[in-house]
Design a protein around this nucleic acid. Structure first.
Lengths: 128, 128
DNA sequence: CCAATACATGAATGTGTGCTCACATATAAA
DNA sequence: TTTATATGTGAGCACACATTCATGTATTGG
């Protein structure tokens, strides 16, 4: 038998991030091992962050149905064309949307099948 | 036969949000009808936004395995206890985590089964 | 009761970001 | 070619937000 919870007193440096540590070392080690690498979690957060803006969420939601041009998106969402363009660039940089040019018109659509999957998963949480 | 694309010239008010509208009315109307209500999309964006911070993503990821107390989370993620507490409050307010108190120690765990589902969906996009 | 511990929280601060504005670019019509 | 249209983009601003710092609260041990 052993104590699962270990108390460690750290030297009394006022500037230490945390003066006192009450670590369950076994659980922390286990969790650390099971966790995805930092870089992966960082990219994951970045993806969610992009989806975490109402304007961009609406853009993605609109594109679930069919491709739309920039001014259609602007009209549909009720925001300026410039704002839409800026947000479309963000979505493009994250490979969430792609576009095709037909003359002057740019038709945007979803780039990845995962996106709609993620959106549906989120909706399940919201619509309960 | 009819023109699918309709050009509408709006009065030349310099302050108008959009001087010119090139709306495919049929597609816009169709997309508008298919889209979830604004309130739903707003809540959806709010949920993604909460997941869109690296610290919070790490917290959720750590809690996928088992419940952890505040200082274990702080140690695991490598951030101050205060910062963890602030972020845990955010996650609590969005009903993403819950906690139980055992004496002075607060053990946090995921509140909703959907969360891990959403996280997995996001990971599929990131890890391709 | 008193001191220490585990966590919560308000204020302050530095950073990030979504929008507007102005302008640039590219294509099409005249 | 000239003009209008459809979209892209840099700068600037107002606001949101993640962290730190200081302190408050609740529970335990002595």
């Amino acid at each position: 038998m052993y104590w699962d919870i270990k108390m460690i007193k750290v030297e009394k440096d006022k500037r230490a991030v945390c003066e006192v540590l009450c670590i369950n070392e076994r659980k922390v080690a286990s969790a650390r091992q099971a966790m995805k690498p930092d870089a992966t979690l960082f990219k994951l957060a970045a993806s969610f962050k992009v989806l975490g803006d109402p304007t961009r969420t609406k853009i993605i939601s609109a594109l679930l149905q069919e491709e739309l041009c920039v001014c259609d998106l602007a009209s549909l969402i009720g925001i300026s064309q410039s704002a839409i363009s800026h947000q479309l660039r963000v979505l493009r940089n994250m490979n969430l949307v792609k576009y095709r040019k037909d003359g002057r018109i740019a038709y945007y659509s979803l780039d990845d099948d995962h996106i709609s999957f993620i959106l549906m998963a989120g909706l399940k949480h919201v619509e309960e």
